[in-house]
Structure formats: C-alpha cells, structure tokens
Design a protein around this nucleic acid. Sequence first.
DNA 1: ATAATTACGGATAATGATTATCTATAAATA
DNA 2: TATTTATAGATAATCATTATCCGTAATTAT
Lengths: 145, 145
Amino acid sequence: MLDPQPRFEELITALKERDYRLTPQRVELVRLIAASEGHPSAAQLHARVKTRFPTMSHATVYKTLALLKDMNQVLEIDLRDDSHYDGNHPAPHPHLVCMRCNKIADGDMELAPAAVKALEEHSGYQIIRSQITFYGLCPECRQSG
Amino acid sequence: MLDPQPRFEELITALKERDYRLTPQRVELVRLIAASEGHPSAAQLHARVKTRFPTMSHATVYKTLALLKDMNQVLEIDLRDDSHYDGNHPAPHPHLVCMRCNKIADGDMELAPAAVKALEEHSGYQIIRSQITFYGLCPECRQSG
DNA sequence: ATAATTACGGATAATGATTATCTATAAATA
DNA sequence: TATTTATAGATAATCATTATCCGTAATTAT
C-alpha cells in the first residue's frame, strides 16, 4: 500500500486553504480517507472514526464528505443502495461493481473528450461530471458461480 | 408522440410468452409504461396507475417493474434519490441528468465494444451491464441560471 | 480583553425509496 | 371440483441520507 501521509497532508492543506476548521473529528476522518484502500461507504467510514471518536455521528461524516466533494478532493460513486467514496483518486473514472459480492474495482477506460463535446452540442446540456459504472461479476465470483 | 400501441402489444406478448398473468393492474401499468414519454420513476408510475386502480400498492409496481427488468423489457436508470425507468428503449444507453431541475434526457453516445472488451480483459470482470450518466445543466437551466 | 458571531459536532427525528411479510383472492391445473 | 400457485394489497420494516436544533469551541470585532 502507498504511503497515505502525502495525501493526508494534501487534504489537510486543501481544508486550511479554504479556512475550514481542523477539528479532531475532521482530521481523523481525513486521515482514514487518505489511508483507505478501495471505496469505503459513509457507513464504513463512520464505523472507523468511531473507534477513536465513539460519539461521532452520521451527520458529521456526511457533512465533511460533502465538503471534500465540493472541493473535488473526494469522488463520490453512487450505487443503488448507498454511495462509496474515493479520496485518493478524486478524478472521475469508471468503476466495476460485482453483482454478487459488491466488490468495487477501478476501471481504466476513459471517455474521449471529443465524444463528450459532441454529446454536449447535440443535447444542449452543459456536462459537469459523469459517472460510468459497469455491473458484472468479479474474477472470484465468476469462478465460484 | 409515437403510437404506444405496438410497444404495448410487444410487452403484453412478452409477458404471455413467459406465462405471466395479465391482471388488470399489470396490464394498466404496462399500458402506462408503453405510453410514457421520458423516464418516469416508480412513484410516478404508481400515481398514474392509481387514477384507475386506487388501491394499487407500491409493492405491486415494484414487483412488475422487476419482472420487466429481468425480461430486459425495461431499462432501469438508478439515480441518487430513486430509479427511473424506460420501457420503450430498454437497451442500455447514456443519460443526461440536469442537476437543477432533474430533467433526464437520452444521450446518443455509445461505448466502443473494443474498449469494453479491453476493460473486461484488463480487470478480469465479466461485464453484464453498464450505466453511463452525465450530470450537468439542461438547456433551459443553463439560461435561467 | 470581552462580547458577538460563526462553524462545528452531536443528538434526534424526519424523509423517502425500496423491500419483506403476510393474507386473501383469482387464476390455472390436476 | 379440488388443489396449487401467482398476484394484489396492506402494512410494517429497513436503511441511507438529510434536516433541525442546540450547545460549545473557535474566530472576529469592538
């Protein structure tokens, strides 16, 4: 696993730059986001913060995640049941979701900017963000299926 | 607007072929799906069925939608808050969602099959379906913003 | 410094979509 | 005709997310 320290400092710096307060709870959540592998959900992050801050409420987790999202420091992946978050690769990218075990993997495909531009012109929409999700079976579940 | 009758008959035929019962409530829901423009939500469909069948319950709507989904006769578009459905163009295709008024439009972009194949090989996942959603501002909201 | 303002955490409840459970009934089958 | 099965419907449960409200700590202004 990569050293989470640099990313942690990036996130802290980004919060400082915007004059957000670095409360202990917030710092701990940011620490966990930087240290996270994969794509934790809000509930999972909440559970992890609780080990050090037993009174941490859901609302605080959501509030801080919303903050980081607005700062484009965290990518939200909304799935059917809940959302998952990636604070280490906040640029939009496709995801692969296993329909059996719900594992989430990162895809490396990217949208051709020309195609997006064409879609904007054709539809009249101004595109701000995109989400591409593939549903299927992960390597493990393909076998044991 | 296109004549909904042929699509209605297609859906009815598909249900018959699989020996599902054509109850009045079910037929009415199918009729509304075939006649729908855009991408109604389960709640919207429920409200529409209720005008003719005031006792229609949510569960029945969801059950029939799940049935049609499994038959690949209805495309489900899951958004953050709820799902929307397209029973007239059930093949997966991208959607544009307005972040201001929540209007949903169809996109005409398509994924290059070679790119999907490459993603399958690279990730090890077997891809069963995909969902591409663009978030932004619709033409109307771009102006009045 | 002190007072006033603001941001934040936390508790709690509200919301709202979806699903589960159970029962009665209508349809299909034996 | 009897039996089985699918379905509708009522109702409650679940669960993620959001809203509200209050107390407190931090910041700012006086």
